[in-house]
């Protein structure tokens, strides 16, 4: 039982950290540029497809991740300069409509290039086996690496946003965009850089989750919804809030999928319990979001003063 709880906690941590990668980019973009970007999941999908393509071409997973991060960042910057820049002044509904169109276009372009069938992306050879964490308890090495990568990115973001000049500009932009501009921050370049960083984070999440899930058209939508829930819980514009929110959502989701069916089995039949458990876990996440909105509408760690 102890190993079951430990394993499920690690699973929840892994899922939560990957959600954090997506939510961090989303909250930065929403907080600093006030841009609701529904195409954020498409950047995640593009990152995963780039990793799959480069792995098939070269066979090296590490090289593929680097190439995907660079490629997705470039695509993100291009998108920002050509299209999204014009949306900053518009209201949120126009942004939703425009980025939703972008989402659909990305899906169809990817389907044109790669087809509708999922693309095979395997875990790298060296990491596809188990690691003995405790005597008798084995955990997949790849999932451990995902947890490690997520924690490394969290530390990197903390240092970047909290300890560098550029990070200070980003935080100032999130707190009060007009004032930051008045104080001499080059807002145009800041926005492009923030969007590039957000796109790079999406690519890392896509590279980590691609071998575990399937790389297929539309893979970004389901995780994007959870990312929006996370930034609402955590607070728009706050990376600390994104981390806490993502870990909360990841743990609730995994615990719900794992322990709720076991508990429900005592008075429901097995197939019904297995269907109701995950549904209740999803409901719990949205109830948590509603509760946060009710008591702290700005989120747990609001960035706006």
């Amino acid at each position: 039982m102890a190993t079951l709880i430990l394993e499920q906690t690690l699973n929840g941590l892994q899922f939560g950290l990957m959600l954090f990668l997506l939510a961090a980019g989303l909250t930065l973009v929403f907080g600093i540029m006030d841009l609701i970007n529904l195409a954020h999941g498409s950047l995640y999908m593009i990152g995963a497809y780039l990793v799959a393509t480069v792995v098939q071409a070269t066979g090296s997973f590490a090289l593929a991740v680097l190439a995907a991060v660079a490629g997705t960042a470039i695509i993100g910057v291009l998108l920002e300069v050509t299209l999204l820049r014009r949306l900053y002044a518009r209201d949120h509904l126009s942004q939703v409509l425009a980025t939703f169109a972008l989402l659909l276009i990305c899906n169809e372009v990817v389907r044109l290039i790669f087809g509708s069938q999922p693309v095979m992306l395997s875990m790298p050879e060296g990491l596809s086996g188990p690691v003995e964490l405790l005597p008798g308890f084995h955990y997949p090495a790849f999932r451990l690496m995902v947890i490690g990568a997520g924690l490394a990115v969290a530390v990197f973001l903390y240092l970047l946003v909290g300890r560098t000049r550029a990070g200070m500009w980003a935080r100032a932009g999130a707190s009060n965009r007009e004032m930051a501009g008045a104080m001499g921050v080059n807002v145009k370049i800041l926005f492009t850089a923030v969007f590039g960083v957000a796109a790079a984070l999406c690519a890392v999440a896509g590279a980590m989750l691609g071998p575990l899930l399937a790389v297929q058209v539309g893979m970004g939508e389901s995780i994007l919804i959870l990312a929006f829930v996370v930034i609402v819980i955590g607070g728009i514009g706050s990376i600390r809030g994104a981390l806490v929110g993502a870990l909360l959502v990841g743990l609730v989701d995994t615990v719900g999928r794992a322990f709720l069916p076991m508990f429900l089995r005592s008075f429901l039949s097995a197939p019904v319990a297995s269907g109701v458990g995950p549904a209740l876990a999803s409901i719990a996440i949205y109830v948590l979001m509603a509760a946060v909105l009710f008591w702290r509408p700005q989120g747990l760690f609001p960035a706006r003063a």
Binding site: Q8, N11, P271
Partner: peptide, 20 residues
């Protein structure tokens, strides 16, 4: 007996139950 959802791709929770 464990019943994952149709189209589910991440079996970490189910595998933990199998191990237990």
């Amino acid at each position: 007996e464990v019943y994952p959802r149709l189209g589910q791709l991440d079996y970490s929770a189910e595998l933990a139950q199998i191990r237990a």
